[in-house]
Design a protein around this nucleic acid. Sequence first.
DNA 1: GCTACATATCACCATATGCCGATATGTTTA
DNA 2: TAAACATATCGGCATATGGTGATATGTAGC
Lengths: 110, 110
Amino acid sequence: MSRSVTDWRAKILGALSDPTRLEIVEFLGGEERCVCEIVPPFGRAQSTISKHLNLLFEAGIVERRTDGKRTLYRVRNPKVFDLLREVDAMALDQISELKKAEEMLEASIR
Amino acid sequence: MSRSVTDWRAKILGALSDPTRLEIVEFLGGEERCVCEIVPPFGRAQSTISKHLNLLFEAGIVERRTDGKRTLYRVRNPKVFDLLREVDAMALDQISELKKAEEMLEASIR
DNA sequence: GCTACATATCACCATATGCCGATATGTTTA
DNA sequence: TAAACATATCGGCATATGGTGATATGTAGC
């Protein structure tokens, strides 16, 4: 029960734990885009992007539909953006603390 | 620049993308606890838990201090709990959609 | 100083992940 | 039907990850 919720959480977080996939989600934003639009900006093989997209799909981050010969992806639940904003807040906290530490270090040297 | 923020985000999310680590974070809650308290409930080798804790530390999720022969860990930024609540919301959405789909499937069978 | 305790680290194994090029599948268009 | 296009899937490689038991490091107590 509770076990499976934890697993879902881990799956969602795992899907978002890769820089390329994070950027794919950002790139999608609120739009629906086909793979042929998503591939070029990332400079990775089409097969690589396809696997990332499938992983995001399996984790329920994106949904997809096919239209003719293309497959269109879109972010399924806008909550993911709230989540990313939350992570950003944490990341910024940490980076600014790092900077503070660096400055203190520098000050102590000179 | 922007690259390194994305990497930080990925690092934070990666640290939280494992069920054991998620449960360690939950277990810590707002408290400060030593490794000797954390290990038993998880039924994993001490070395395994130690590695998980170190990974959480590297990602800036927890902080640690030593007191005598023990090392005490605590969640460093309470924002992590907001983040987890956000993930929960998503996970619940997805699980409930799964259930809905199952019910529709069952209904169509009988 | 020796012993027991608490924790981190090491060496190792098995599996997962990210990446690629090549190929299979399916759809449109000529 | 053939050719072109869009995407997914396969096989393979290198590296990362999670797990373990054994060992190193450091502190507390006797």
